[in-house]
């Protein structure tokens, strides 16, 4: 299916979509290029955190200052969604979601992975792979179910038939559309960005793709923000219950 998009006569760039660098792990196939980049992302995050918290000063300096800014940013996301009382236990999850997606997206846009040749496929942002985004979205689903059960036990299911049992199918459908839209939004945005850049590079290799790349950086950051904000909103919804109860708390 790829043949009509990649033009073989132009040696400057070519589009590779849907090709993966497979690893065999005891009968299981995994996408090697996704894991390589995600390990780099994880290493960046862990090293930056270690450097920032190794020697915490009262008056922050250098990398500690920067990481404190990042921390306060994700804390504000979690606090705005979950409220002052509830956000603390969920901060690591939502914060890590944001940081991982953000660094992944920007690593895909900023690092010239094309210089590293793989036998098959190419290195790109981990969020460029549907497996990653679906994994993250399913984790968000699990997280809000866990939050609901933790808070209300089996009473959590009451929200499906409140205010009226007529809406039961829609309420159940919502649980499927949430991870679906979360994962497809992130996947589609990142993939679309990389495809647009690739097509432009294919047509005009110099300078013209730069504004689109900048737009891609912006979109990637916004998508990380949207993903973590929505995760927080879903968890909050599970914690608070439905509709009218929410109004009381607000």
């Amino acid at each position: 299916m790829l043949s009509f998009l990649s033009i073989p006569s132009l040696p400057l760039a070519s589009l590779e979509v849907g090709q993966h660098f497979y690893w065999q792990l005891g009968g299981l196939k995994v996408h090697g290029q996704v894991f390589i980049v995600s390990w780099i992302v994880i290493a960046i995050l862990v090293v930056a955190s270690l450097l920032a918290t190794r020697n915490i000063q009262r008056i922050p300096q250098g990398i500690q200052n920067f990481m404190e800014y990042a921390f306060e940013f994700v804390r504000d996301i979690a606090r705005n969604q979950l409220g002052e009382k509830e956000y603390r236990p969920w901060l690591p999850f939502i914060g890590t979601l944001f940081l991982f997606i953000f660094v992944s997206n920007w690593s895909g846009a900023l690092v010239p992975w094309k210089l590293l040749k793989l036998p098959e496929g190419e290195l790109a942002a981990p969020t460029n792979d549907i497996n990653t985004t679906v994994a993250l979205a399913l984790l968000v689903s699990l997280a809000y179910f866990y939050a609901g059960f933790r808070k209300k036990g089996l009473g959590y299911f009451a929200k499906y038939i409140q205010p009226t049992p007529v809406l039961l199918p829609i309420a159940i459908l919502e649980d499927f559309t949430k991870p679906l839209s979360l994962s497809f939004r992130l996947f589609g945005n990142i993939l679309a960005d990389e495809l647009v850049v690739a097509v432009l590079v294919l047509l005009v290799p110099l300078f013209v793709p730069l504004p689109v790349m900048l737009l891609g950086l912006f979109t990637s950051a916004i998508q990380a923000l949207v993903f973590s904000t929505l995760a927080g909103a879903y968890i909050h919804e599970a914690l608070e219950g439905h509709g009218e109860e929410h109004e009381e708390h607000a």
Partner: peptide, 22 residues
């Protein structure tokens, strides 16, 4: 934030298009 939400609707169409193509 709102624009990103609306944009994602187009992205769903794009995902469908990509499924059809690739």
């Amino acid at each position: 934030l709102t624009l990103a939400f609306m944009e994602s609707l187009t992205i769903y169409g794009l995902v469908i298009a990509l499924v059809l193509l690739f």
